[in-house]
Amino acid sequence: KTVEVNGVKYDFDNPEQAREMAERIAKSLGLQVRLEGDTFKIE
């Protein structure tokens, strides 16, 4: 899975870890996480 923030992509081998990281980043920035294919987009 991939986490994308402001056009910057971070790859994770563990999908659960990617989801947790995406949620943590989104919460700290006051944004939403949206799953698009294999990418968690933070917008």
Rank of each mutant, 00 (worst) to 15 (best):
K1H: 14
K1C: 15
K1W: 15
K1M: 14
K1F: 15
T2V: 12
T2H: 14
V3Y: 02
V3L: 05
V3P: 01
V3R: 02
V3C: 13
E4W: 13
E4F: 11
E4R: 06
E4Q: 11
E4I: 13
E4H: 06
V5K: 03
V5Q: 00
V5A: 03
V5T: 02
V5P: 01
V5S: 03
V5I: 13
V5G: 01
V5W: 14
V5C: 15
N6Q: 08
N6Y: 12
G7N: 05
G7W: 02
G7E: 01
G7Y: 03
G7Q: 02
G7D: 03
G7M: 04
V8A: 07
V8P: 01
V8F: 10
K9S: 09
K9I: 10
K9L: 10
Y10C: 15
Y10N: 01
Y10F: 12
Y10V: 07
D11C: 15
D11R: 14
D11N: 14
D11K: 14
D11G: 10
D11V: 15
D11E: 14
D11T: 14
F12L: 04
F12A: 03
F12C: 15
F12P: 03
F12H: 02
F12M: 04
F12T: 02
F12R: 00
D13F: 09
D13S: 11
D13V: 10
D13C: 15
D13T: 10
D13A: 12
D13P: 10
D13K: 09
N14L: 09
N14A: 07
N14M: 08
N14F: 12
N14R: 07
P15E: 13
P15G: 08
P15K: 08
P15Y: 13
P15Q: 11
E16L: 11
E16G: 09
E16T: 12
E16I: 12
E16K: 12
E16W: 11
Q17N: 09
Q17S: 10
Q17L: 13
Q17R: 11
Q17C: 15
A18C: 13
A18G: 01
A18K: 01
A18D: 01
A18S: 03
A18R: 02
R19A: 07
R19M: 07
R19G: 02
E20T: 11
E20F: 06
E20S: 10
E20D: 09
E20A: 14
E20G: 06
E20M: 12
M21R: 04
M21D: 00
M21C: 15
M21Q: 07
M21H: 08
M21W: 15
A22T: 00
A22P: 00
A22N: 00
A22I: 05
A22L: 06
A22Q: 00
A22Y: 02
E23R: 07
E23V: 10
E23A: 08
E23W: 07
E23D: 11
E23Q: 11
E23H: 12
R24Q: 08
R24S: 10
R24E: 07
R24D: 06
R24M: 11
R24Y: 10
R24F: 09
R24G: 05
R24N: 09
I25W: 14
I25E: 02
I25S: 02
I25T: 05
I25C: 15
I25L: 11
I25F: 07
A26V: 03
A26C: 14
A26G: 06
A26P: 00
A26M: 03
A26F: 04
A26Y: 02
A26K: 00
K27R: 12
K27S: 09
K27N: 11
K27M: 09
K27Y: 06
K27E: 13
K27I: 11
K27G: 08
S28E: 14
S28C: 15
S28L: 14
S28T: 10
S28R: 14
S28N: 10
S28P: 00
S28H: 14
L29E: 03
L29Q: 05
L29D: 02
L29K: 04
L29F: 06
L29C: 15
L29I: 04
L29M: 12
L29A: 05
L29T: 05
L29P: 01
G30I: 00
G30W: 01
G30C: 15
G30F: 01
G30K: 04
G30N: 07
L31V: 13
L31C: 15
L31K: 05
L31W: 10
L31F: 07
L31I: 07
L31H: 09
L31A: 13
Q32I: 14
Q32N: 11
Q32E: 12
Q32S: 13
Q32T: 14
Q32R: 09
V33K: 00
V33T: 03
V33G: 01
V33F: 08
V33W: 12
V33M: 07
V33I: 12
R34V: 12
R34K: 12
R34A: 05
R34P: 01
R34E: 04
R34M: 08
L35D: 03
L35G: 02
L35Q: 09
L35E: 08
L35H: 06
E36N: 05
E36H: 07
E36F: 07
E36K: 04
E36S: 06
G37Q: 03
G37S: 02
G37N: 10
G37H: 05
G37K: 06
G37A: 04
D38H: 06
D38L: 01
D38Y: 04
D38G: 09
T39L: 07
T39D: 05
T39P: 00
T39R: 06
T39G: 08
T39H: 06
T39Q: 04
T39A: 07
F40N: 05
F40Q: 04
F40P: 05
F40E: 04
F40L: 14
F40K: 04
F40H: 07
F40Y: 15
F40C: 11
K41H: 14
K41W: 13
K41L: 14
K41N: 04
K41V: 15
K41F: 15
I42C: 15
I42Y: 02
I42M: 05
I42L: 11
I42K: 02
I42E: 05
I42W: 00
I42D: 04
E43A: 08
E43R: 03
E43F: 13
E43W: 08
E43C: 15
E43V: 14
E43P: 02
E43L: 12
